[in-house]
Structure formats: structure tokens, C-alpha cells
Design a protein around this nucleic acid. Sequence first.
DNA 1: TTAAAAACCTGACATATATCATTGTTTCCA
DNA 2: TGGAAACAATGATATATGTCAGGTTTTTAA
Lengths: 248, 248
Amino acid sequence: MIFVTFSIILHQSKVKSMSSEKRCEYCIIRQFNSLRAMSKEELKQVSDSKTSKSFKKGEAIFEEGEKLNGVFCVRDGVTKLSKLSSNGKDQIVKLATKGEVMGQRSVIAEETSNLSAVAVNDMELCFIPKEVIINTLHKNPDFTFEVLRLMAHDLKEADDVIVNISQKTVKQRIAEAFIYLKSNYGEDKDGYLSLSLSREDIANVVGTATESCIRIISEFKKKGLLKSSGKKLGILDEKKLRDLAEGF
Amino acid sequence: MIFVTFSIILHQSKVKSMSSEKRCEYCIIRQFNSLRAMSKEELKQVSDSKTSKSFKKGEAIFEEGEKLNGVFCVRDGVTKLSKLSSNGKDQIVKLATKGEVMGQRSVIAEETSNLSAVAVNDMELCFIPKEVIINTLHKNPDFTFEVLRLMAHDLKEADDVIVNISQKTVKQRIAEAFIYLKSNYGEDKDGYLSLSLSREDIANVVGTATESCIRIISEFKKKGLLKSSGKKLGILDEKKLRDLAEGF
DNA sequence: TTAAAAACCTGACATATATCATTGTTTCCA
DNA sequence: TGGAAACAATGATATATGTCAGGTTTTTAA
């Protein structure tokens, strides 16, 4: 799971107005991923070969070990990318959001996917067959470089996660997770997080037992750091959460 | 730290025979990293601009937060790449070996290094200025793709590490570390691991306290899974170590 | 060769976290 | 709308791991 604080929040309204029929050439989403480096011609190719897919909350987009015949460009919604460990628990490694491309790594390495992807909420995706991607990778160095740049970024974040998980306490990591959720997905007008994950999902993000996660969230609520209303959770004292995450 | 079992072990003798004066075009090492995808012309450029550097065991090659003006190609020796966590402990994220290129990520992302590199034993490195690399990345898609492929591999391994660290016990991870050390660096004629890391380094690889690491190694010795002679450690029962790592 | 410094080892103890079990609460859909 | 399933909460307990503190052995370098 990745804890980086600044990122672009696309507004729901803007995205909703784009129908699946629209062409990649005019797709706003593209601006936020590697496809921005494609030429008009290449985008045309992508557009002609892509298919749109919808997934309901909870549905699997692909499974660990599955051979991917292309990549998924997230148009709307959020996916959890996770990996099953030998003890039977799912570790969420990354959340993929509007604008991100999933499955690139596997397609590039010509390996089966090392992760499973499950929709956290209802999703709209574009599926782009791998041939087009591979083709462009071999022809357009700008595109390849852009993919490389994004992967370099992911790798750095993965390093950060490794250090966080092995050196910080569960409490610190949960505090961090809430800050991450707020800064990456924002909050609604009442101050509740726009993306609401179940306690189990949060536990799988930070790598702990669900019960421990619940306990710590309860503690945070008692201490006035978080508030809740039904399923929704909101941040009351961001500064204190940040301090906690840093170990104070 | 990365636990992947199959990898190429270059033989000491072969490498020792190459002097720093030799040209990249004829360097065997190159075959094992992204430079294999460079053209004769590009390699000539690299060769003309590279400088050779030696580091003694324990010396720092670069520090976290440092701006890298190029990449390091490991000709001989092993480096630990680590990151300092807020609690003051070093987490080793990767060991870089003969044939690997360090610092690529930072150069590509145009960021300061997120990791420190310290020599585990005496090292021979080639330093390649970033201009040549960046230049080639923008001109030669084969090279860029090769770098991308290797980074995709690193990313997958990082995912594996995340899952291991958060879901496996310290004992499992230490068992895994020994299997990794054997299969990646081999053992001498007496069955001792060729690469000997201090207990502290092993602890920093698996993300635990030094004392815990020592205790578990002692336990493994008592159980006949490991043997030691002075500083050297050797594997006696690989099968059992593997089982342990899997949780049996 | 010897002293100092690292590295290694071990015990006692504290504590964070996992696990198991039970109950209450919300959400969903038939 | 009611009943089942999923989710959340909390207590009791076990355990793995970290921390502190005191040793011994090995390595290093003067």
C-alpha cells in the first residue's frame, strides 16, 4: 500500500459525463497516465481495439496467476490490487484509481499477473489488448520512457511500504492510511472520507489482523481523531494523526 | 530484500581477469543488465565517459537523499541498498550484485536517491554519467524497454517482499533469507555461504531486531539446520529450511 | 602481540499484536 | 419488511517479538 500525500483528484462530475463510446484521443483520463505520450495515430489504434467493461463492487477484474491479454485503464472507481500469502491472508499492495493503468507490469514482463484485482466500488474500465501496447513500446521511446517513469515511481513507493511495514507499529500505519485516504480521495462536504474501505480492507492494506484494526480505529474515535457515521469514517484531527504516524 | 531463487552466479575467476581499462563493448558483465540492448555506438559512448571506482567493505557508495549524477554498474562485490526509517533503523531493501545497475530509478525519475548504498565487501564499480543513459533512453527503444523489463521485475519482487514481511513470521523470513543467500551467491567447497552477512545485516534484511535474528540463528544451529565456523554460516538442511519458510 | 572495538550470544522482562469467542449492528435483497 | 449475511465491536488470552542489560568471543588495527 502506498502512502504518498499529493495526487490529483478528478471530479466525479467530469468523469461521469464521458460515455464509453468516446474515443481515447479525447479522453481526459489519458492525461494522467502513460498514454499521454502516444501519438494521435497510436491512440487511434488503441481506441479501435479497446473495449469498455463495467464491474460491480466486489467483482474480480483479474486473478493472481491469470495471464493478462492486455491492460486495464481505470475510467472510474477504485480497485484493490492484492496478493494472497501462504497463510491465507490477502495483502493489499496498491489501490488503483481513476487514470491509472493496471496490468502493465505483467504484460511487459510477459508473466502471469502477480496480483489480483477486485473492485472496491462500481467501476468503469477500458481494456486495451496487449499487442497495441507492446507494439507502441517497441516503436515510441517517449511512451516507453513514460511507462518507465511511472514504474520507477511505483517502485519507490513499494520501497517506502517495505520500510513502513517493517519498522512502524500498526497504530502508526493505520494513522498513515487515513491520511493517505484523505489526501488521495478527498472527503465529502460533511468531512467524511470519499473512499470508504471496510475495516478488513484497511487491515489488509496495513498488514494486520482485522480485529487489531478495528480496535485501533475505535481508540482513534475515542481520542477524537476520527469520527464515524454508519459506515463512513472522517478525520477530525489530521495534525495529531500525522504526529502519530511519525511516532510521537 | 528480495527472495528469488534462481539467478546467475558469475564466477569470481572470470571477473577478476578483467581490468578496469577494458572497454564496455567487451565487458561480460554487460550481458547481465540493460546495457546488453545498447548499440556498438552507444556502448562506445558509455565506455568513453565511464569511470572506474573501488570501494572498501563498509564504505558508502551513495547516501539517501543524494543527487546521483549517473548510475553504478557493479563489476565485482555486493552492495546493500537500504533506507533509514523514522525510528532510526536501517531497512535493507535489496542486495545489488555483479552485473546489476544501481541508481537507475533515481536518474530516470530525476529525483534524489531514496536509498543508501553501502559496500558489503570490497567492490569494483563503473560509474556511468547520467547524460549518456538519459540520451540513450530517449533514442533507443530497445534499451528503454530492457530497463523497463528489469524494473518490472524489481517491482514484482518488491511486492513479494511486502507480502512476506507483513504476513510471515520472523523465523520464516530468516529461513527464507538463507535459502536466498545460497541460491543467489552459492556456497564454498566446505558448504559455507559465499556471501556472509553480519547478523545485524540479516536482521535489517528481514526487518527484525538484531537480537531476535541471533536467537533464531542459534536455534537453527541447535536444530541442525545451519552450521557455523567463525563468521561463516552454512546450510545443513535446505529442505527443512524451505518447509519452515513455507510455514510447516 | 595486545588492546580496543566489533560482533555475537543469552537471559529477563515488557508489550504489541494475533487469535478465539461472543455479541451487537448495519446492510442488503428476496 | 424481515431475516440472513456481512460487518463492527470488545473481552480474554496466548504468543511472538522488541528492549535492556550483561556477558563472551572474534576481528581489527596499532
